[in-house]
Design a protein around this nucleic acid. Structure first.
Lengths: 229, 229
DNA sequence: TGGCCTATACTCTAAATTGGAGTAAAAGCT
DNA sequence: AGCTTTTACTCCAATTTAGAGTATAGGCCA
């Protein structure tokens, strides 16, 4: 068993740092902590707590309810120290899995109904996540959240979550609206309008003067910064 | 070798559907197609084209430049058909890896400089990705993009990419600004202001009347829709 | 013209990770 | 008393990652 700590290790340490949990609870409650920003298989969490415990970063205590045992983990000083040291290391970049975009790309070989259904699904997913975000917001406003004493930090996370999901929802809305104006999924007469839309996108482009020396492809490919995961 | 097609299979099929590629080019150019929305190991792409070729969904032709061979893949009718059928299936939900949020969560055990450095890194990553987005925009405006005839579809993807990254960048900006107003990372006097910030987040909360029957935790956990990956 | 560096074009594999099946007891519900 | 759901995990086959390794081609410079 490797001694190498991964981001998953730190996600577990960070959640256990809040208060002790049985692994089952830890896994169930991950949705309120890091499932949305660091989704991992449940079995990976069970594996991780055992590993961290063997390394002395967590302290596992067996409890019994009748014949059924459970292990409740708490963080050790060594575990907290590991977290602290991690904060000095470079962060790994934002990444996403967004299958819907591949479907949008090949949408013209299917039907309008199919791409509309896909976008509806994405919008509904975003709305469901926003509903959850609203619940968390409500808990803080009522003062009943587990991490109530940490609102000043948690507010930053809730802000991110809600902003991101609102962006996704807004994109599905305007994309659906655009597609609804189409008679079919052929390019006929749509590209000119699309170029205007692209022109209005809120991102700067370089002057042609500056672009003249075409950069080699390796400079185009975003690469990770040195020493980053 | 399993015959089961994965989202990675469709990402490869979709890119090869644009025009034939050698595997090396396919892998290099993924950044312009699906690397940002479906990031996978390069070796996984090499494995996938061979598998798809063996299944008859891609057609691989060996070419030679001196002693060095390369295989150029094109999509077959069967491959296009597989893509078409896939469009009728349910889409898998949006997911992200955002390690920085775990660091924000435990920021108080570290220093202000550390969390500021993390947020700077996230902002710089977002800016780098936006710069790339600006390049793609520019290519379309100049009419020199490989998928120029598909601007009406590609515009939707570019819109998503730029919106999302702008959201991430804006969040890092206001979060950095907030943290800069802090003397230290302790909760002292910060929670009240944070509650006000949470109150203003653009997401609805339920009336307490409707929340009265507290839903069981399984209803709180967002679960995937039936039949979804 | 030879030497060096970079780009092309992959293969291979140990280790990590996923996803789900399986086991079993407790708690709730009817 | 019997059934379903929840708690509380373990186990493992199959997949996936990350990087090391191999080899040729092409460009550049002295």
């Amino acid at each position: 068993m490797s001694e190498q700590l991964t981001t998953t290790s730190y996600a577990v340490l960070a959640q256990v740092a809040v208060h002790p949990w049985s692994t089952y609870e830890l896994v169930q409650q991950r949705v309120r902590y890091f499932r949305y920003v660091w989704p991992r298989a449940e079995s990976a969490i069970y594996r991780e707590v055992k590993r961290l415990s063997a390394m002395g970063l967590l302290d596992g205590r067996k409890e019994h309810v009748g014949k059924r045992a459970r292990t409740v983990y708490s963080i050790t000083g060594k575990g907290r120290e590991a977290l602290r040291e991690w904060l000095a290391t470079p962060v790994s970049p934002f990444a996403m899995d967004f299958e819907a975009m591949i479907r949008v790309f090949v949408a013209p070989i299917g039907t309008k109904e199919q791409i509309v259904a896909t976008l509806h699904q994405v919008r509904d997913d975003a709305r469901e996540m926003l509903r959850f975000g609203g619940e968390v917001k409500q808990e803080f406003l009522e003062g009943i959240a587990v991490t109530q004493d940490q609102v000043y930090i948690r507010a930053l996370a809730v802000d991110f979550f809600i902003s991101l999901l609102n962006t996704v929802e807004a994109w599905t809305e305007r994309t659906l609206a655009e597609i609804e104006t189409w008679d079919d999924l052929s390019p006929d007469g749509k590209n000119e309008r699309a170029l205007e839309k692209i022109r209005e996108l809120p991102v700067p482009t370089l002057e042609s003067v500056e672009r003249t020396p075409v950069p080699p492809r390796t400079q185009l490919r975003p690469r990770r910064h040195d020493g980053r995961v």
